[in-house]
Nucleic acid binder design. Structure first.
Length: 255
DNA sequence: ATGGTGGGTTCCCCA
């Protein structure tokens, strides 16, 4: 079973890339973020034609998440419990075979100290509660997506420049650590301690061309999932093609 | 400290 996460930065703008990539990689499950469209205009047919079932949770203009799977998608849930006034489409969860998935598009936060930064920290605590209350971590649980947080300096191309900045601040890393404390493992770090593995490169600074990236897209695995996870790999090649997303796909393999 | 590019919307927001 191979599962991918990919922030596509608009499913409609990225559709040719996504279709080609699905054909090339043929993952069993795909968790998408930043689809940026209402469910009724999600381009379902060309993806279904490649053999995928689809569950979406979108909104106009911003955010939006979706799960694609070759198998049946069951027990689908959308959003965070509690505040019904929060309509941001950033969370979708589902079961595929004997795996429980949670696909997240974590709030970016804009900059440390901004209102959106406080919202990001509160939002992460709500995610922690969702996992704690709804997910049985004795099962094979895969929490994935765009976390907009680096774990540590190995995930940052220039740690001194980014020290304390958005995506790298202590409070963000602590909020992520509290989620990990539920009993989740960073899937990539099971396999390598190597620094310089990135999943996102800023368009504005031509980060990819300069090798300036961050690792902010993750696979958080329950112990049962981690025991059967044989690889977590970034498809860096995809980021270098024509009209790419600013994120590369990441693929986790389970035996 | 600033700006750069890219996507979507609508006369600017978000990343």
């Amino acid at each position: 079973m191979r599962c991918a996460t990919w922030n596509v930065n608009s499913i409609r703008a990225r559709l040719p890339r996504v279709l080609e990539w699905l054909e090339r990689q043929s993952p069993d499950v795909v968790c998408l973020q930043e689809t940026k469209c209402l469910d009724e205009v999600f381009p379902r047919e060309p993806i279904e034609d490649l053999g995928y079932n689809i569950e979406t949770f979108g909104q106009k203009t911003y955010n939006g998440v979706a799960i694609l799977a070759k198998g049946r998608i069951e027990e689908v849930h959308r959003g965070l419990p509690g505040d019904e006034s929060d309509i941001e489409a950033r969370v979708i969860g589902a079961q595929v075979e004997d795996f429980l998935f949670l696909d997240l598009y974590v709030v970016n936060g804009q900059e440390v100290g901004a209102p959106k930064y406080s919202y990001k920290l509160e939002w992460l605590e709500r995610v922690r509660r969702l996992i704690d209350e709804r997910y049985d971590l004795s099962e094979k649980v895969v929490v994935t997506g765009d976390f907009n947080i680096t774990f540590d300096d190995r995930d940052v191309y220039d740690p001194e420049k980014w020290r304390g900045k958005i995506l790298c601040s202590d409070a963000e890393r602590e909020a992520l650590a509290r989620i990990m404390d539920l009993g989740l493992i960073d899937g990539l770090r099971q396999h390598t301690e190597e620094a310089g593995i990135y999943t996102w490169w800023d368009f504005r600074t031509r980060g990819f061309q300069r090798g300036n990236g961050l690792r902010i897209d993750h696979f958080l695995l329950s112990e049962a999932a981690s025991k059967v996870c044989t690889a977590v790999e970034v498809d860096t090649e995809e980021r270098g093609l024509e009209k790419p997303s600013d994120h590369a796909p990441v693929i986790a393999t389970f035996e």
